[in-house]
Design a protein around this nucleic acid. Structure first.
Lengths: 228, 228
DNA sequence: GCAAAAGTGTTAGGAGTACACCCATGC
DNA sequence: GCATGGGTGTACTCCTAACACTTTTGC
């Protein structure tokens, strides 16, 4: 029976896209990494980082491979986000997209401007996104919602602070991503109650101010509560 | 470039499974609809309802087609749940699975016991699930979690009560699915506060008891809060 | 009248929100 | 010592949780 299936043209020419919304937060602005496509379809247009999955790799592996091939980024944690499967979402072939989100510090990575299939790469503020290829606008907006959810229940921001962070520092990141202000004292209590971070007994000095305690994300953490 | 891709064997022989966990709740037991496979792979084993997506149909359309072909069920609402993409999850070909969940009233539908590719169909209590084909155990468990989430923020239980329900009636359903008891008075307040249901000005009589008000799910409802 | 189950309201506790004061540093 | 920003504690409010009594029906 499966051989009948393989011979049925309705089962042919299908593939899986693995597409990542890679975010960073700098100076109160949430940005996403976009690449410029150097081949058809959508040649010359901007797009999220991704491509077609190989048939011999897991989803996350494929998504990370695409990230590496198109941006040079090697170490990044990504989280499954959603699925996009409209019949016509890709013009050349039926492709179902599996989307991921990830966060890195744009200041700490070197982004390749040009690769085999891209002619540029840039961090775009999420409120200044150009026209994107495929259904990437939809995927990006959905990924942004997932990011807002994830920062309240996971260590997805870990990559921004590999050496730890102070609470006032990371509060600015939360406020930027969620586009919302928090009371300093309540934010501290709330964040600590989420059981995501821990004290490091170190402090960090800023010019002319009281030193701030340094915290870090816990290692094997469980996520129960949400921030918003 | 895309033509190179099409010629690359790493992009060939991929497909998408659309797999549905169809639940019902009867007499305090949550059950899921399983079918017995009549073809390889996993011939003779039980499995969730699903199959391979056509390249000309949307995900939900394909999932519903599979449900119809393998069970005869025509009218069912399904909700996207998750993605499963391990390389070896299907033995014959690389298949990425997109999972859905749905709820129907087992007493109100006629299930086909035998179809082109199935030799039986049964409602299994979710704590008495046999060995399942593929990674369907994982998909089912994940779907059950999604069901627990969805009943608190959507009208997914609507199909169980097309003519309305009383609050004590539906409370038993919530308690069954969530495997948790609720205080009658608090449950009523909470459920009403979710803005999912509305009064119908009708009542329903049970033998020897005070008549109970009949409610129904609202039509165009938004989901903000969660029950648990 | 009595049993059974439905409907309603009130109180106590915990989480979230608002808010004020003290502390350590660089200049 | 003064400006700047970090750290801590308390009162109020709101949602949640616990709980008791009245109402309607069939027999």
């Amino acid at each position: 029976m499966i051989y009948v299936k393989l011979g049925n043209s309705l089962y042919e020419k299908q593939g899986i896209h693995v597409i990542s919304s890679i975010f960073t937060v700098e100076n109160g602005i949430t940005k996403v990494l976009l690449i410029e496509r150097s081949y058809e379809p959508y040649k010359g247009m901007w797009a999220l980082v991704g491509g077609a999955l190989y048939n011999n790799e897991d989803l996350v592996v494929g998504a990370k491979r695409e990230i590496y091939e198109k941006t040079g980024i090697k170490d990044i944690d990504i989280y499954l986000s959603n699925v996009f499967g409209k019949v016509d979402r890709s013009p050349l072939m039926r492709m179902v997209a599996v989307s991921f989100i990830g966060v890195i510090d744009s200041a700490k990575v070197e982004i390749l401007k040009e690769t085999m299939s891209t002619s540029d790469a840039l961090w775009y503020p999420i409120d200044k996104i150009p026209n994107l290829a495929f259904d990437h606008v939809e995927i990006l907006n959905d990924g942004l919602e997932m990011l807002k959810k994830k920062i309240g229940e996971s260590d997805i921001l870990r990559a921004l602070y590999p050496n730890g962070f102070t609470i006032p520092e990371i509060q600015k990141v939360y406020e930027t991503v969620l586009n919302k202000q928090f009371d300093r004292r309540n934010f501290r209590k709330k964040l600590l109650s989420l059981d995501l971070i821990q004290d490091t007994n170190k402090t960090k000095n800023f010019m002319g101010n009281k030193p701030a305690k340094v915290y870090k994300f816990k290692t094997g953490n469980i996520k129960n509560k949400s921030l918003l």
